[in-house]
């Protein structure tokens, strides 16, 4: 099944290091994954795990210090030509977490949504530009008359939709959504999630979704990569990950997701993950495929242990 899918984005051995010399801090390392066209691929982890850094490395905000990123077969990491850089900006767009910080307060919605079009002259004439941004703003459920207003006149949910309109007006093939709903009210979250899903259906959009909330991720993603301290510790299709969660960190994350059910919640056991439980002194770990499409960061002894666990889980 996986073979038929077209790989749109490929990340190989990625590492991102901030600072240099003795102050150097490696935020992410040994990151390997492919994203297929039209899917939603989620990066999950807690704050400081490096999930956002990976997203930002893809759109070239954070330079990769090691490894390569390929988009539609072209290498887009490291030094690239100006044309290629522009092509990346046009085709990969990002939606940021905080809709009040990511929109220019002193610009009208008209300018904010058009900025990308201006930068790349992606319109024939003024009429064409207006048609494009009106379509974009309507596609996120706002009205063309909103275009003359300023960001502060909108609610958080509306601002996030403006952020999505600004990204989608570029007609990108890949959208990186960095915690797009965590700053929003519960009642608004569903609207924004539905909107992203709708774009995916209508435009065959590929989404890399960065989040910490597994309940949201489970609903929206086709595949999930769990990140801990800058490393992907487990990667699998969504259902597979929930069925056969193997890495102890994944397990603690799953157990921590609150369920809206008092009986289940009150019976639940808390699992605390301790990174010291792995003994990697002799037997070195690597990123290995344990079941088709299911990868895990483990050494040989752990692999044997995890295989046993799968058998047990299947028996239940």
């Amino acid at each position: 099944m996986a073979n038929e899918k077209e790989v749109i984005l490929s990340v190989k051995d990625l590492a991102v290091t901030f600072g240099s010399g003795r102050k150097a801090f490696t935020a992410v390392q040994d990151v390997n994954f492919d994203v297929y066209k039209g899917e939603t691929f989620s990066l999950v982890g807690e704050s400081g795990s490096g999930k956002t850094t990976i997203g930002r490395a893809i759109i070239r905000i954070n330079p990769a210090s090691k490894g390569e990123i390929h988009f539609k077969g072209k290498k887009i990491s490291g030094k690239i030509s100006k044309e290629l850089d522009q092509w990346v900006v046009r085709n990969i767009q990002m939606v940021f977490q905080d809709p009040s910080a990511s929109l220019n307060d002193r610009a009208t919605i008209d300018y904010i949504v058009s900025e990308g079009l201006y930068n790349f002259h992606l319109y024939k004439d003024e009429e064409d530009r207006h048609r494009k941004i009106s379509e974009a703003i309507e596609s996120v459920g706002l009205l063309p008359e909103h275009l003359t207003r300023y960001p502060h006149e909108f609610s958080g949910g509306q601002r996030q939709r403006i952020g999505i309109a600004r990204a989608m007006v570029m007609e990108p093939e890949l959208l990186i959504a960095d915690e797009p709903i965590s700053a929003l009210d519960v009642s608004i979250r569903a609207q924004v999630l539905n909107l992203l899903k709708e774009f995916q259906r209508k435009r065959d959009l590929t989404i890399v979704f960065v989040a910490h909330d597994l309940s949201v991720v489970r609903f929206i993603s086709d595949r999930i990569a769990v990140i801990h301290k800058g490393r992907i510790v487990e990667l699998a299709e969504t259902e597979e990950l929930f069925k056969h969660s193997l890495h102890p960190y994944t397990k603690s994350l799953l157990a921590a997701v609150p369920m809206p059910d008092p009986q289940i919640e009150k019976n639940k056991q808390l699992i605390v993950y301790d990174a010291d439980q792995h003994d990697y002194s002799v037997d070195k770990p690597s990123f290995q495929e344990i079941l088709p499409g299911h990868f895990i960061w483990a050494n040989e002894a752990e692999m044997a242990e995890y295989r046993k666990q799968i058998e047990e889980q299947d028996r239940n």
Binding site: S155, V186, S187, I188, R189, A190, Q191, L193, N194, K197, S215, V216, R218, F219, I220, V257, M259, P260
Partner: peptide, 23 residues
């Protein structure tokens, strides 16, 4: 009802989540 229905934990994959309209 609306608050509970809009929870992603209760969402069915491939279907829209229940969203509360308006403000």
């Amino acid at each position: 009802w609306a608050l509970l229905s809009s929870l992603p934990q209760l969402g069915v994959k491939g279907e829209d989540l229940y969203a509360i309209t308006g403000t």
